[in-house]
């Protein structure tokens, strides 16, 4: 039976490596989206102003592409902010709580958050599918509208996974973590 255990450990090692690689790839994608969506919105907006001042006409695609960038950045950002503990929260009571309460909250909060995000992600899949079936297109450019909203289910599921990791890291460590990359202020 020992060889089975060893084999399982070896397999887990490979799987773990794969997952970590996947995670760091996702992390890079999130970074890329957050950076370049902001730059894209900027260029589309002031570019449109300059173009209009020169030609008197507007870029018909500017508003829709900006909107797409905003939606993608917002929902992919859920996952990134979860890793870094950057979500806005009212942490006053948390900060003032005794250590035991804090530790409990540090486990419960990411767990419930993940459940809510998975639920929203599930409904977002249904919604996106409905849009896909309807064949609705955007008004100005005419590209499929489901592309506009598909970032929502993706963002919610990735975000949910990150929050589960935030819970996990609090379960296996003694210290209190606000996120996998961020310890509680009192322990930094």
């Amino acid at each position: 039976m020992q060889w089975l255990g060893a084999a399982l450990i070896a397999v887990w090692g490979v799987v773990r490596k794969g997952l970590l690689f996947l995670d760091s790839a996702l992390h890079s994608v999130e970074l890329f989206i957050l950076k370049w969506s902001i730059i894209a919105i900027s260029v589309l907006t002031f570019g449109n102003v300059i173009y209009r001042m020169v030609t008197g006409d507007s870029w018909f695609f500017a508003a829709e592409l900006s909107r797409l960038s905003v939606i993608v950045a917002s929902f992919i950002g859920i996952s990134y902010a979860a890793r870094k503990g950057r979500h806005i929260s009212m942490s006053a009571f948390f900060d003032l709580s005794p250590r035991k309460v804090k530790k409990t909250l540090a486990i419960i909060i990411p767990f419930v958050t993940a459940i809510v995000l998975f639920a929203v992600g599930y409904y977002a899949v249904l919604y996106t599918h409905g849009i896909y079936v309807s064949g609705r297109t955007t008004a100005a450019i005419g590209f499929p509208f489901w592309l506009m909203v598909v970032a929502i289910p993706i963002g919610c599921f990735l975000g949910g996974i990150q929050f589960l990791r935030n819970m996990w890291i609090n379960l296996v460590n003694k210290e209190i973590y606000l996120a996998q990359d961020k310890k509680d202020y009192s322990e930094q």
Binding site: I33, L34, K35, I38, A73, Y80
Partner: peptide, 12 residues
């Protein structure tokens, strides 16, 4: 832009 993007996402 990354730092603006993070704040934007959190607000949006």
């Amino acid at each position: 832009a990354l730092s603006s993007g993070i704040v934007t996402a959190a607000v949006f």
